[in-house]
């Protein structure tokens, strides 16, 4: 009984309910929601925002808000591709991923060093590094789209995990192999945040930095880990995006910061730090992807999209905030 009550009060519950209502509604209007190709499309569309959501989740649990990932991911992805192209790379595709992750980690460490040393507001520091990455990308590297990506990556882009054909929609659907990267990363982050001392330290730092320091958590080390890991995910996402699109476009992540942050928050992660779940992050991302992908299915013009996203964010955060204040009132009276 108690457990049931707890579920009701959680943000994840509302997000899940909303997804269900939306799915049924779209199915009723178009009859094309629960088709294999649509489901696979949604899963495929979840990969990139889902991975970025995980990195934002880790940062947000520690009490910060990272906005540098759209361009740190683009920069690590782009530098890797030009480097590989310069050496006419034909080796294992894992090297491409590793290289991109390495670039990501370096950028993340810069964030981490500044935040660790000076304890400036994370939003502003990452805003600055985002601007720097953008400057390097377009100013120094003169970035533009590279359609001809190295051969090993191209062949990975063509490998699929699942292929289906939906009779109802008369369309073929497929899920690329890199979905596994997303899947493994999700499992790894779950394990990190729930089961390791480092993960719990991140929660502890988000709960109360002063206390964390006093009981002997090496807070500086934790900060370096958080931002290094967030950078790692950004690099990984960059290369995944290249595989998914089969091309390398430096602007591919622009504007994603707002939606990713919003998805993480809709899933119940607190901006003030210290609380949030992976389930929530995935549900929030799913909700956004459905709204993004399925408006056409319902015959609503595309330009309504932003409006709906805005309403979703305001409603989602409003409900969460309302619940907190109601809980506080109840606590006082009882």
């Amino acid at each position: 009984m108690d457990k049931v009550k707890k579920i009701y009060t959680r943000n994840e519950f509302y997000t899940a309910a909303l997804i269900l209502v939306l799915a049924v509604f779209i199915e009723l209007r178009s009859g094309l929601f629960f088709t294999s190709n649509n489901i696979l499309d949604i899963l495929r569309a979840m990969i990139v925002p889902g991975m970025l959501g995980l990195s934002e989740y880790i940062v947000m649990v520690s009490g910060g808000c990272d906005v540098s990932f759209p361009y740190s991911a683009a920069l690590s992805m782009y530098s890797t591709i030009i480097l590989l192209k310069a050496v006419d790379f034909m080796g294992n595709v894992m090297i491409a991923f590793l290289l991109s992750c390495l670039f990501g980690i370096v950028i993340g460490m810069v964030n981490g060093l500044i935040i660790m040393r000076y304890r400036f507001p994370v939003l502003i520091v990452t805003l600055a590094t985002c601007s720097i990455c953008q400057g390097i990308l377009f100013g120094i590297l003169n970035a533009h789209e590279i359609p001809a990506i190295p051969q090993p990556i191209q062949s990975l882009a063509k490998s699929m995990l699942i292929r289906t054909y939906s009779e109802k929609a008369q369309m073929a659907g497929s899920l690329p192999l890199v979905f596994l990267v997303f899947f493994i990363l999700t499992a790894a982050v779950w394990f990190l945040m729930r089961r390791t001392a480092m993960g719990r330290s991140i929660f502890a730092v988000g709960g109360d930095v002063g206390s964390a320091e006093r009981i002997g958590i090496k807070v500086n080390y934790v900060y370096m880990f958080i931002y290094g890991f967030a950078g790692f995910i950004a690099g990984l996402t960059g290369m995944t995006r290249v595989v998914l699109m089969d091309t390398c476009h430096p602007n591919t992540f622009s504007g994603m910061d707002m939606t990713v942050i919003a998805a993480v928050i809709l899933g119940g992660t607190k901006v003030t730090g210290g609380s949030g779940s992976i389930t929530g992050v995935m549900l929030g991302t799913l909700l956004f992807v459905i709204v993004n992908n399925s408006l056409q299915l319902m015959g609503i013009p595309n330009y309504w999209q932003k409006f709906f996203l805005g309403v979703l964010i305001v409603l989602g955060t409003g409900i969460a905030a309302f619940q907190v204040s109601r809980k506080r009132k109840k606590g006082k009276a009882g």
Partner: peptide, 16 residues
């Protein structure tokens, strides 16, 4: 008390 309001009772006790 230097405790973590967002963690469980058990975690707060054994974290140090």
């Amino acid at each position: 008390f230097s405790i973590f309001p967002n963690l469980t009772v058990a975690e707060n006790i054994f974290f140090g």
